[in-house]
Design a protein around this nucleic acid. Sequence first.
DNA 1: GCGACAG
DNA 2: ATCTTGTCGC
Length: 219
Amino acid sequence: MDRKALEKEQLSLARKVLLEDKFGDLRLVAGADLTFLDIWKNPTEGLAAFVIVDFKTGRIVEENIISGIVDFPYIPTFLAYRELPLLLKGFENLKNKADIYIIDGQGIAHPRGLGIASHFGVVLDVPSIGVAKSLLFGRYREPDPRRFTPLYSKHSGEIIGWVIRPSKGKKMLFVSPGHKVSVNTSLKIVLEFLRRKWEIPTFLAHNLLQRERRRRLYG
DNA sequence: GCGACAG
DNA sequence: ATCTTGTCGC
Ligand SMILES: [Mg+2]
């Protein structure tokens, strides 16, 4: 499948994205991320982790790691074709099902409106949010520490997400809705984690993976 | 044609 | 994404 075909598939799936809150009370919030044992090899073994947090207490309800072979290369705007397969495998392996899934990457803040978080949400038909550590698409004004600014589409000028500066010295967060959640609610949910000084679930998943990776490579 | 470019 | 501890600055 060439780039053009994948772009058409993304545009097709993007039409299914729903930017309205389609969930009841938020009890469990999941965070997901991936790591790779050898980033210099192309078919390489990847690890996907999901960490599920109780949104009322902040307690970790489940930590789940699965592994598998990843062969698709990283190409900007096509991240899902590299990371989604393992995320789907990890999702199926979960004991608990979360009310919303936060994925490391963009939601609708993508040239064709389908970042990995949206792709994940549409395919599984579950609410999702994208929290990225850098910009892929859109324009914004840098927020002051502990403030946030809107992220505008370079196509329509509409607000497609938010840029949050957790605190001075910390890197900015690029938040955008994935699926079945509104632009405003996606911001509220992430801000709530920050307000309560809880680690964002995607970072919990990332940290868990680093420990697991070092364990497999060294002692 | 040039610059931008999640992980 | 990963390689890496101490160190400089507020
Ligand atoms: Mg990641």
